[in-house]
C-alpha cells in the first residue's frame, strides 16, 4: 500500500511556481525524507496534502484513497511551526487535538513524557521557549499513536541533545512499523534516519528513491607528488577512468562508492616512476553531494 501518492502536483503563487508537476509515492513503513534547500517547496507540498493549501493542479491520494478529512485524523502532523493557543497550557492544547482526532485524553501524559515536557505541562504555551514549543508540536503529532507521521523540520529550534533525542525517537517509531514523512533541509538528518528521499529544488523534483542509491558517497582518493601536473597526466589513464582534478596541489580521483583501491593507485604511480608524497582515501562530503544535486 502507498501511504501517499502524489501525481503531477503543482502550486502557483501568482507568477511564482512553488511546485511544478511533482510525482512520487511513499511506501508503507518507510521513512521518507523530503529534502531541499529553504524555499524549495517542501512545506507547500505538505500543506497541500494537509488541505491547508489549495493546489493549482494535479492530485494526491492518501492510503490509496482520494483524500478525506478522516485520513488526516490517522496522521500525526507537525507543519512548519508549532500552532497552539497561546493562553492555554500544554495539556489544555492537547485536549483540543485529542477531541478533534477522537483520541483518548489519557494519551496526553504519555506523549508529554516522550518529549520531556511533563514538568511544564500546566504552563501556558506563551511561556515556552522555542525548543519547548517544538517539543509540544512533536507531542501533538504523536498523540493517539497514529500510524503515519508527517514531520516538517522536526528538529527546528532544538538543542543538540534534543536533536539527537528526536532522531532516536523517529528511528524507534520506524521500528514499530510506522510510516514517517519528514521534510528537512539538513542532509545528514535525512541520511541518518531516512530509507527513502525525494529532493526538491525551486519547486522541481530533482530525484527520488532509495536513500542509499541517491545519497551514496563517492570515494575520493587524494594523491600528491613533487610534480603534480605529471601525476595528473599519468592518472588520467588509470583503469576505470576516474574523474581527475587538481585542487590546491593535490590530485583528486573520484571513484564510485566503495570501489577505490589505494594499493592499486600506489602501484600504478610507482610503475610510472612517480613517488607519492601523499595518498589518502576520503568520503565525499554529503554537503558537496547535496550542492551537486541541487546546483
Amino acid at each position: 500500500m502507498s501511504i501517499l501518492k502524489v501525481d503531477n502536483l503543482s502550486k502557483d503563487y501568482g507568477k511564482i511556481k512553488a511546485l511544478q508537476n511533482i510525482s512520487f509515492h511513499v511506501p508503507e513503513g518507510s521513512i521518507y525524507g523530503i529534502l531541499g534547500p529553504n524555499g524549495s517547496g517542501k512545506t507547500t507540498l505538505l500543506g497541500i496534502i494537509m488541505d491547508v493549501l489549495k493546489s493549482s493542479g494535479g492530485s494526491y491520494q492518501l492510503f490509496d484513497e482520494n483524500p478525506a478529512d478522516s485520513h488526516r485524523k490517522r496522521i500525526g502532523t507537525l507543519l512548519e511551526t508549532p500552532n497552539f493557543y497561546h493562553y492555554l497550557s500544554a495539556v489544555q492544547n492537547l485536549k483540543i487535538t485529542a477531541a478533534i482526532k477522537n483520541r483518548p485524553v489519557e494519551d496526553i501524559d504519555r506523549v508529554l513524557d516522550v518529549v520531556n515536557l511533563t514538568q511544564r505541562k500546566h504552563s501556558k504555551f506563551s511561556t515556552y521557549s522555542l525548543g519547548m514549543k517544538q517539543r509540544l508540536a512533536i507531542a501533538n503529532a504523536l498523540l493517539g499513536d497514529p500510524e503515519v507521521l508527517v514531520l516538517d523540520e522536526p528538529t527546528n529550534g532544538l538543542d543538540p541533545v534534543g536533536i539527537a533525542e528526536i532522531r532516536m525517537l523517529i528511528q524507534q517509531l520506524a521500528q514499530q512499523g510506522k510510516t514517517i514523512i519528514m521534510a528537512s533541509h539538513m542532509l545528514d538528518e535525512v541520511e541518518k534516519v531516512c530509507t527513502h528521499v525525494a529532493i526538491l529544488k525551486y519547486g522541481h523534483l530533482i530525484t527520488h528513491g532509495d536513500v542509499n542509491e541517491i545519497l551514496s558517497n563517492d570515494d575520493i582518493v587524494e594523491v600528491a607528488s613533487i610534480d603534480v601536473a605529471k601525476l595528473k597526466n599519468a592518472l588520467i589513464n588509470f583503469p576505470g577512468n576516474p574523474q581527475v582534478q587538481i585542487k590546491e596541489n593535490v590530485v583528486h580521483l573520484n571513484f564510485p562508492a566503495g570501489t577505490a583501491n589505494l594499493e592499486e593507485v600506489n602501484r600504478f604511480c610507482f610503475e610510472r616512476g612517480i613517488v607519492l608524497s601523499q595518498l589518502q582515501l576520503k568520503k565525499k562530503s554529503l554537503e558537496s553531494k547535496f550542492l551537486e544535486l541541487t546546483n
Partner: peptide, 9 residues
C-alpha cells in the same frame, strides 16, 4: 490554529 485544526482532521 486554523491550520492546525484542519491538519488534525
Amino acid at each position: 490554529t486554523n491550520r492546525q485544526n484542519i491538519i488534525d482532521g
